[in-house]
Nucleic acid binder design. Structure first.
Lengths: 208, 208
DNA sequence: TACGTTATTGACCATGTGGTCAAAAACCTG
DNA sequence: CAGGTTTTTGACCACATGGTCAATAACGTA
């Protein structure tokens, strides 16, 4: 018997995500969100709870989507794991050198989070771990294929790839062009080929 | 004959930089700056012109300082260029995994800039190029030393290092610990070696 | 010591913000 | 068609913000 909603929640979150990606959490005004999503302030409010909550939702969706995308890009069976990661990086280089002003919500959350216990921070941390896990799986396959040294530290390499891709994102935003970014991606991939150096102290693991 | 200023401009810029590094441009309130710098709003205003201008000043100083620091770290004559870059990266890993909530002003400017022609954006671009140039010089030395393949693309490798360090910065902020970040730094360095060189030495300056 | 110049101070302001409220509208069921 | 429930709407608000103003203080000079 209640009046049904006129909107689809995921659409709203997605539109909001666009706004946040373009402006950031703080700089995105509630009015921007209202305009982008099409529904009124109050509707937004009682459906999500506020700007921050909405951002968290968008962040969560963005993270899922990103993970899925990478996972998919690395999951094809028609090429070796190593080739896939290579293709993935090269594609990313092109994508990130495009001129739109988007910044991934994860990066935004990271930068705009106010403290270690900020929900933004914890969500981001989780996202990074999740992403690293995807890379790790692919790298593990590569190792099993013999394309990586047996003693390669798949975990740290996975985190390394997260770092590199974040850095490339920033560089892309700074206006570094497609050619350079592609070269950077290729440089980054060369880290896979060498012999494993001695491990740093302790056994690196993402959670600490 | 005019009344002299009671403050030193560079001190003010430096204090302001602290605030900006901790909160960002948008989130740093004028009041924060007043509190941190010690002088009044109006003094701030007619000495610098406004929050944005002050940020630009701080950004510029930060960039200079960062470039100088890296340049210095890479400029010692008592070790090979390759060893220096290695030490630099390892030190950076430790520094960036510290728990303070600082984010380099360059990254902040990058993320908070609103458009391609935003002063923030252009200043940042310049800063990145400058930093890359420092890396490039060091890498060139390494190449001359025979520690890098003759056909190594020093320019793109330099940009690669900028990307990696930015990524490490973000990861550090995300709470990735010292051990993992150090491992990432070592992974990153392997891009230099390709499959030819393995390091024979231990890892210097792991703790400092 | 008085003057001119500039720095400083603290009150002040317009504006845009995230968030709230109460009334009206829309829907499903009975 | 009526009742109950929830959404929608648009006006409203308290407040913090960046920025400004006019008065005052401090200094070097003549």
């Amino acid at each position: 018997m209640p009046r049904p909603r006129k909107f689809v929640e995921s659409d709203v979150v997605s539109s909001a995500g666009e706004v946040f990606a373009a402006h950031g959490l703080a700089a995105a005004t509630l009015d921007d969100l209202v305009r982008a999503t099409g529904l009124g302030k109050q509707s937004l409010y009682n459906a999500f709870g506020g700007k921050r909550e909405l951002f968290l939702r968008a962040l969560s969706e963005d993270r899922e989507e990103a993970t899925r995308a990478v996972s998919e890009a690395l999951g094809h069976e028609d090429a070796s794991a190593l080739e896939q990661i290579r293709g993935h990086m090269l594609r990313l280089a092109i994508e990130l050198s495009s001129s739109d002003r988007r910044v991934s919500l994860t990066t935004r959350a990271l930068v705009e989070s106010t403290g270690e216990d900020d929900p933004l921070s914890t969500a981001t941390k989780a996202g990074i771990e999740q992403l690293a896990e995807v890379y790790a799986q692919c790298l593990e396959h590569a190792r099993e294929d013999g394309d990586l040294p047996d003693d390669a530290n798949v975990q740290s390499l996975a985190v390394y790839f997260v770092a590199v891709t974040r850095g490339m994102e920033l560089l892309g935003r700074a206006g570094v062009g497609r050619a350079v970014l592609t070269a950077v991606a290729l440089d980054a991939l060369r880290a896979l080929h060498g012999q494993r150096m001695e491990a740093a102290d302790g056994s690196p693991s993402l959670r600490e």
